[in-house]
Amino acid sequence: MSDRTITENIIKALADYLRRNPESIKPDHHLRDDLGLDSMAVIELLYKIEEAFDIQIPDEDLVRLSTVAAVCEYVEHRLAPAKRPVARSRTAKSRKKKK
């Protein structure tokens, strides 16, 4: 899956969740301040993203997933651990183990 497709899919998931036009959602949008997601809504969104990309997001990673771009970059890192440095080696390891 290309990085562009990942971004598109995440924006689509967000648009579905928020029931708004995907084009109105920009990468620099802050999930809480711009899109109005409270902490529970972020958890619900990540639950959908975990399913869509077959990943598990550890609790300690949640804190940095504050903007649309941050979520997209995070998922890209998680799906391509070999290509880029991954912030948390433990999550990469657990993913390998799963496969």
């Binding site: 958890i43 639950y47 550890p58 609790d59 300690e60 949640l62």
Partner: peptide, 9 residues
């Protein structure tokens, strides 16, 4: 766990 309410560290 899914609510992200529990300690995991």
């Amino acid at each position: 766990c899914s609510l992200r309410a529990l300690s995991t560290k």
